[in-house]
Structure formats: structure tokens, C-alpha cells
Design a binder for these strands. Sequence first.
DNA 1: CACAGGATCCACT
DNA 2: GTGGATCCTGTGA
Length: 197
Amino acid sequence: MRLGEDFYKQDAVTVAENLVGKLLVRKLKGEKVECRIVETEAYAGPEDKASHAYQNKKTDRTEVMFNSGGCVYVYLIYGIHNCFNIVTNEKGKPEAVFVRAVEPLSGIEIIKEKRDIKSKQVEEFTNGPGKLSQALDINKELNGYDLVSGDEIYLKTDDNNPEYQVISGKRINIDYAEEYREKLWRFFIKGNPFVSV
DNA sequence: CACAGGATCCACT
DNA sequence: GTGGATCCTGTGA
């Protein structure tokens, strides 16, 4: 079942935790490429020193984070990689969930084509934020895209109800965030080979 | 207008 | 384990 508005309008930590195990559907070349989300991080509002929207900082880049939950936030990092985020909570509250890793379920051939690396390890195709963005052709054109009503990219529940355990931990590469480094706002599926670290 | 730096990845040693 | 890539963005002059 497709995730609706209500799901995204919860706080970022709740959404981050519940997003693990959900399916990400991306339309590429007229085909539906499906992936299971295996790792997320919450960037939770104006008090979070790790967030781009810390202290409600509103700029051209962070503006989408202030939209109501359910739209896409894409930004470029290190001049190279796009990062895929999902905006959460009510309009005016700048919160988002960063999707760090996914497990491909269908459309592997398309993913391989989009990724251009020597390694043939399947895990290497989508086990990191920049990697999954490249694999699923996620770029700035999708910034602000509506996951609730759009057709190019959206989320749904996994109706096969697989067994998995969700673990929380500290977020990655946010050394600048002082005491917010310690927050256990990273969530991932225990033992899943596609988890990034 | 100029500049520093980043929610990373990959090839190489 | 490590360094280079590479460019957009935010900031301050």
C-alpha cells in the first residue's frame, strides 16, 4: 500500500524509524525499480545542530525542508554526490529523513547501468547515500517532488511482511554537530548487507 | 565578488 | 587506510 500524507506528517525521528523496511519505487525507462529502504537518519528540526535547517535557517537550499511532509529534498554534497531526503512534519517545521542505503529488489540491470564502477559486488550499487542516488537517477530535478501524489518516485509498504529487526545508532559524518552527534537518530535493519557501514 | 567547506565515493597503496 | 575529485551553497566583504 502506498504511504499517504499522514505518514510523512509525523516527526522526523518517528518517520525515520518507520521508513526502514518500506519500499522505494522509482520509475526509470518506463519500468518500476523497487528497493527496500534499509538505513535512514533523522534530521530533526531547528534545534538539531547537524541539520541544514539548524535554527530555522532558511536559504535557497533548505527551503523545501519547510514544506509539509511528503516531498523530496535533494542536495549536492562534495560537488559530486546527490543526497536523497524525505521532508517530514507539518509545513513550517524543517525536518527531514536522510535515506542512506537501500536494497534493490527489481530492476537490477537498470541500476547497474546507472552506476559505473568496477566492483561487481551487488552491495556496492546502493549501500550509501550517494550510491543510491546515482543508481536511481535521483538529482536536483526531483527536489520538491511530491511523494504522495507523484508517479516518478514514491513509497509503499512491503506487503510480504518480511522479518527484520531495526537497530538505532549514532548518525554518520556529523562531527560538527556537538552534543547532537550522540543522538541515536540513525536506523537500520540488523544484519542487512546493504547497510552502509 | 571571492572563497571555504561539505549528511561521500572510489581507486589506489 | 587514505587522498583526490569537484561544484554548489552560504557567508562575508
